[in-house]
Lab assay of single mutants.
Amino acid sequence: GETKIIYHLDGQETPYLVKLPLPAERVTLADFKGVLQRPSYKFFFKSMDDDFGVVKEEISDDNAKLPCFNGRVVSWLVSA
């Protein structure tokens, strides 16, 4: 499998796309960081919350699996 991750960088209009050679349910924050090489950023991901619906959730645990929608991951990188 392959996972497409779209990421928005510090408010830039056009998002970036990276592809990881892993199925979406196995991709972790560490996998994503390894491709990006951007150490001083906070990582937020499109996520579903039972109370609020669609939210941007910050993930900082490198072992955390990334939230996935239709085989895609959507993220926002914010300068720390």
Rank of each mutant, 00 (worst) to 15 (best):
P39W: 07
P21N: 13
L20Y: 06
G34S: 14
T14H: 15
T14G: 09
S60R: 09
L9G: 04
K65T: 13
F69E: 11
D51W: 01
P15G: 07
L36G: 00
L9N: 01
I59W: 03
L22R: 04
K46Q: 14
M48A: 15
L22N: 00
K46S: 10
S79W: 03
A64K: 08
V55S: 10
A80L: 09
D51H: 13
F45Y: 03
V27T: 02
T28C: 02
I5H: 06
K65Q: 14
S75R: 05
L29R: 04
Q12N: 15
L29T: 05
T28Q: 01
V73W: 05
Q37A: 11
S40E: 12
I59M: 07
K46Y: 08
R38G: 12
V73G: 03
A64H: 10
G53P: 10
I5S: 02
E58D: 00
V73Q: 07
V73P: 01
C68Q: 10
F45E: 08
E57F: 09
K46T: 08
L20Q: 00
T14A: 11
A64W: 03
F44Q: 02
P15Y: 02
G34R: 14
G71V: 01
F69I: 11
I59P: 02
K65V: 13
E25A: 09
C68H: 14
R26D: 12
F69H: 12
F69R: 09
F32H: 07
A80T: 14
W76Y: 07
E57R: 15
S60C: 13
V18N: 08
K33Q: 00
K56H: 09
F43H: 02
F44H: 01
V73T: 08
V73D: 06
K65P: 10
P39D: 15
S75L: 07
V78F: 10
E57M: 15
K56M: 13
L77S: 01
K42C: 04
F45L: 02
N70R: 09
G1S: 11
R26Y: 07
K33T: 04
P23N: 01
Q12L: 09
V27P: 04
G11Y: 08
Y41A: 07
C68V: 13
S47A: 12
V54C: 13
F52R: 15
D62C: 00
P39Y: 06
A80P: 14
V54D: 14
F43N: 05
G11T: 07
Y16P: 01
P21T: 05
S79D: 13
S40A: 12
P23H: 06
Y16S: 10
K46M: 11
S79C: 09
K65L: 12
E25D: 11
D49S: 15
D10E: 12
V73L: 05
S47M: 15
L77A: 00
V54S: 11
G1N: 07
R72M: 14
Q12W: 05
L77C: 09
G71W: 06
S75N: 01
F52W: 09
A24M: 06
V78D: 03
A30R: 13
V55C: 14
P15Q: 12
I59R: 02
V78Y: 13
E58Y: 01
V74Y: 15
D31K: 09
I6R: 02
R26F: 08
E2G: 04
D62M: 07
E13W: 08
P21G: 05
R38P: 08
G11E: 11
V74D: 05
S79R: 09
E2A: 06
H8I: 03
T28I: 05
P39K: 14
V78M: 10
I5P: 06
V18T: 08
F45V: 02
I6S: 07
L77F: 01
P21I: 05
P39N: 13
G1M: 12
N63C: 10
P39I: 12
S47W: 06
K19H: 12
L9V: 14
F69L: 10
G11C: 08
L66K: 04
K42Y: 00
K65R: 12
A30I: 01
K56G: 04
K65Y: 13
L66H: 07
T3E: 04
L9Q: 01
E58Q: 06
C68R: 01
T3G: 01
E57D: 01
I5T: 07
G11S: 09
Q12F: 09
L77G: 05
G71Q: 02
